[in-house]
């Protein structure tokens, strides 16, 4: 996989979400991603960034334009220094939440993305990496 372009954004407050969403949309439009896939990507972004704000009071998002073979896509890496997730398997189940949400954030986001990986340990923060391919 080749990275063609990268950009970094710090997330501290609610309104940063709007800036991030617009930035992601810009990149997705640039590689010619269709409207439905763009919407899925941005909705997933919104979910992940909310988790970051809620559980870790913010963090950093890396936006990359990546290319593999004939496919182009957007890779996003969300990293925070929050409390981390104790039971990842459980967090990935529909309807599970430690906060007062619907518990659709992580599993729902995974369904919206082409690729999804999460690394987390209690006390060490959480890193979520997602890829949305242009035609995926």
């Amino acid at each position: 996989m080749i990275t063609l372009n990268r950009d970094r954004l710090l997330i501290h407050k609610d309104q940063d979400v709007v800036i991030l969403r617009n930035r992601v949309k810009e990149y997705a439009t640039k590689i010619g991603m269709g409207l439905v896939n763009q919407t899925k990507l941005i909705t997933g972004t919104s979910e992940l960034v909310r988790n970051m704000l809620r559980y870790a009071q913010g963090g950093e998002v890396l936006i990359e334009v990546v290319s593999r073979g004939r496919e182009n896509g957007i890779r996003l890496t969300f990293s925070d220094r929050g409390p981390g997730i104790a039971d990842l398997d459980k967090a990935m189940q529909d309807g599970f939440s430690t906060g007062r949400s619907l518990g659709l954030g992580l599993p729902g986001t995974k369904r919206l993305m082409s690729e999804f990986s999460i690394k987390s340990a209690p006390g060490e923060g959480t890193t979520v990496t997602v890829i949305k391919w242009k035609n995926g």
């Binding site: 763009q38 919407t39 899925k40 909705t43 529909d94 659709l104 599993p107 986001t109 369904r111």
Partner: peptide, 12 residues
């Protein structure tokens, strides 16, 4: 339409 498709995929 794109929002509706996304919501369904999200499970909502």
């Amino acid at each position: 339409p794109a929002v509706a498709i996304t919501l369904v995929e999200l499970g909502l």
